[in-house]
Design a protein around this nucleic acid. Structure first.
Length: 406
DNA sequence: TCTGGGGTCCTAGGACCC
DNA sequence: TCTGGGGTCCTAGGACCC
């Protein structure tokens, strides 16, 4: 039988800030941007005592706690700490799947075959090591599969260790609300309650599988099995490749000022370009999102001729898409995304599949885009824009490609 | 004065090919 | 005599997670 650990950093962003600003310790703090439309990404345990939690709008949190301290997020810090956290875990087992910035699954089966040890003790050792090294607390769930391990790590926080075995399914899993099941959100929950399914146990024992099928679609069987404590999904320790890189921003106040909106697209395109470059990712699929209200949004996507991560091309394409779908109404959010990103290396592999020297579809040469920068910056009228953009898309840049003869 | 921003995955419909 | 069906790719939208 497998032994899976699910390890989750507690109040991660808040703890990270406290670790470098010890004066914040013991205070009710929340991590969020300082804006009237902000929502809280993480609340410290002191703040949680006031009923404050993630995803709560900042203005509400302030109503609950007048002396609340807000801290701007520092994602670079979190990424660095997260990386160190995973490195520590990997010293126990290499079979590690990064699930998000603050959690991972680890297959510890082999570890316990080699080492005579008690899982509870090993979990404690991991917690201590993470705490001593990074001043971060974590909760650990131990179970025979990923789903149960994840459910277990949620049960005791902070610094909890929870074991769920097959014998515990009826007592520990089944009483939980169906909303606590991973993958059941606020749209699915009411549909299940309609069928009389209010707990995970209700789902596990539901008599009519045909009725739950359309609610879960393709994954119906997987949900049904999980409710019964069975999960056959494997630790995917070789994944963790990004599929998209995006950036979006909500305006302080809704706006239909196109000059202002273009400026936002410029900033978003720059950010996306920089982040993609840092990770050496390129894409030929660019999309924008326009949000008019919290309910009403539009997205538009286009496949361009070349793979790129250049700011100017992302920007020009975003503007083209914008002209294409914008209806002139006030917007609350705009976003830009590179979709289906691949690594530089992958593109080279794809190209080397061809026998002959090919155009390299990745535009990286700055000088080729410099003229377009000029045009775009000097004038942003539509005709100019389309010209500039078609220039970008049509231009194929020859890159020396040396045929690999092996 | 009033609910973010980073993502992943699934679905359904249309275009197109054979 | 009177318009298939399977497969694939693309797009837009939506649910969900942290």
């Amino acid at each position: 039988m497998q032994i899976i650990f699910h390890i989750d950093l507690n109040a991660f962003f808040a703890s990270a800030e406290i670790s470098i600003h010890p004066e914040l310790k013991g205070k009710p703090i929340v991590i969020c941007r300082q804006s009237k439309r902000s929502i809280i990404t993480t609340a410290s345990y002191e703040a949680r005592k006031y009923g404050i939690h993630s995803a709560m709008p900042l203005f509400q949190a302030k109503e609950l706690c007048s002396h609340l301290v807000t801290v701007e997020p520092h994602f670079e810090l979190y990424k660095a700490l997260s990386q160190s956290f995973f490195e520590i875990i990997a010293t126990f087992s290499p079979y590690l799947e990064v699930a998000s910035i603050d959690e991972c699954y680890v297959d510890m089966t082999e570890y316990f075959q080699k080492n005579k040890a008690n899982p509870q003790d090993v979990a404690k050792t991991i917690q201590d090591k993470v705490y001593d090294t990074l001043s971060l607390q974590c909760s650990i769930g131990i179970a025979p599969n990923k789903f149960l391990a994840k459910m277990a790590s949620d049960m005791k926080k902070p610094m909890g260790i929870t074991i769920i075995t097959n014998k515990d399914i009826k007592t520990k899993l089944w009483p939980l609300s169906i909303k606590d099941m991973i993958g059941v959100g606020k749209k699915t929950q009411p549909k299940l309650i309609e069928l009389g399914i209010e707990t995970i146990g209700d789902l596990a024992n539901y008599h009519n599988y045909e009725k739950i099928k359309p609610i879960f679609g393709k994954n119906a069987l997987i949900f049904y099995q999980r409710a019964n404590g069975k999960d056959f999904s494997k630790i995917n320790y070789s994944k963790n490749e990004l599929k998209s890189v995006g950036n979006s921003t909500t305006f302080e106040t809704d706006s239909n000022d196109e000059q202002f909106i273009r400026k936002k697209f410029r900033d978003l395109s720059r950010e996306v370009s920089q982040r993609a470059k840092k990770r050496e990712l390129i894409s030929n699929s660019i999309s924008i999102t326009l949000k008019y209200t919290r309910e009403k949004s539009r997205t538009k996507q286009i496949i361009i001729e070349h793979y790129t991560n250049e700011e100017e091309i992302i920007f020009a394409t975003a503007l083209l898409l914008f002209e294409n779908i914008y209806n002139g109404e006030k917007l609350r959010l705009v976003g830009v995304s590179l979709n289906n990103v691949i690594h530089y290396k992958e593109l080279n592999q794809q190209i080397s599949l061809f026998e002959h020297v090919q155009d390299n579809y990745y535009i990286s040469q700055k000088d080729k885009t410099d003229q377009i920068i000029e045009e775009l910056n000097s004038s942003l009228d539509d005709i100019h824009l389309i010209k500039a953009s078609s220039l970008i898309h049509k231009e194929k840049i020859q890159k020396k490609y040396i045929k690999n003869d092996e």
